[in-house]
Design a protein around this nucleic acid. Sequence first.
DNA 1: TCTGGGGTCCTCACCCTC
DNA 2: TCTGGAGGGTGAGGACCC
Length: 499
Amino acid sequence: MRAAPTILHLDMDAFYASVEQASKPSLRGKAVIVGGLGPRGVVATASYEARRFGVHSAMPMAQARRLCPNGAYLIPRFSLYRAVSDVVMALLRQLSPLVEPLSLDEAFVDLEAGGTAFDAESALETGQRLRADILAATGLSASVGLAGSKMLAKVASEEAKPDGLLLIEPGTERALLAPMSVRTLPGVGPATGEHLRRAGITTVGDLAEAGEDELVRMVGRAHGVGLYRMALGLDDRAVVAERDAKSVSVEDTFDVDLHDRVRIRNEVQRLADRCVHRLRESGHSGRTIVLKVRRYDFSTLTRSETLRGPTDDPAVVREAAARLLEAVDTTGGVRLLGVGVTGLADYTQEDLFAQSMAAEAAAEAATAGGGGGPAAEPDGAAEAGGTGGAGGSGGPAEPTGSTGPGGPAEAPEGTGAAGEAEPARERRWAAGSDVQHAVYGPGWVQGSGVGRVTVRFERPGSPPGRVRTFRVDDPELEPSDPLPLVGEPAVGEPVPEEG
DNA sequence: TCTGGGGTCCTCACCCTC
DNA sequence: TCTGGAGGGTGAGGACCC
């Protein structure tokens, strides 16, 4: 039996870059590249204008700058992207209760389950209406794929990009897929693609011809069976609305490799705290602690330890991470450190009991005048990016992307100047971030350096605004929250001048 | 100036128990 | 008592995705 083409795959076009263009009118039609701006940053999203220069996601930012020196380079503003994504996902949920978000800008929808489509005609109509609704609600374009399965719907939206819609008619799948590159199929990345190419398999048609046994021999059981079925256009995975997280992790890449063992230890502790913070936010505890280390030569290793029971105690995670670090040789330097927790469990009574015991023990230790042990730290120590005083390290680390070009270097290692009044740090203005000026109103940072910050005063829906330069410590300039892309009345705000 | 961050899934090796 | 195999748990690494 052929499935009706009622699985919809939605893909927002160049999402982060499009949001930036919508919120910054002077960037419309220009090459916009969003990603980490530090020396080790990579491109998260490039606008279609930037793609014409060969810039694409996951490319090192330095390479992107060489290819497209006149592009606008911006840091990601996830809070804004999340807000826009919420609007889009709400529109999808009006179509069906079965919506499976894959990321901020992508989702599957089972239209039949929502009663909004039951055949090709009604699916097409729904898809077109959805694209129009998204445009009206966000000002952004989206591509839609419609087919009888998730895999084919995703292939369809990929083919429809940008700003298009494609429906794959039941019965035409194999003929459509056959000439396509194996890389079209989800799960075939650079390594598998190269592996297949060496065996003379470059198209989906070649995959189908090779047969299941041959593919299993080449790429393993699970992958081989899956690949063969996809090559035949077969995919019966259901759209799943709710998925449980399986792990929580945090990691930082450093602008400069870390060598100092004390500093490395401190960073691991800080990451452990951040990880626990995220773990608690998600309402989980976890049993296996994972330490990730990427060394100076980009070789990556992980070390893990499974506890007797799940925990969300920062002291326990810190200690486990520290133990794991002891077994890792870091001579030569490390460029990335990460701490993760897997084997997640729901919050349980046992956990609460264990924690209260730990808290009691900590309180006792404190009253006994011990002091110092990490286990004695109050709960608040898990707060991410908190006061920074707990760790005693030389100030918070600078993850890649946080500094602008030519920004001040991170604090020197081992400067434990606790107690001494630190010299006031120069205010930093990351390119692309939102600001509010007491006189000129809302704007965004176009660039900064040598004590100056350049701001363009414009807002979503306004004409391109004018640029002004201020001292970085100008008291009239404040960081601000992003403005909504659509529907914000510009009452009482100064109107940007045409520049 | 090479190569982010947060995930998922799979494979393989090793150890232990039955 | 010894041996072999199955199967689960654990640890490490690789590939992939957005």
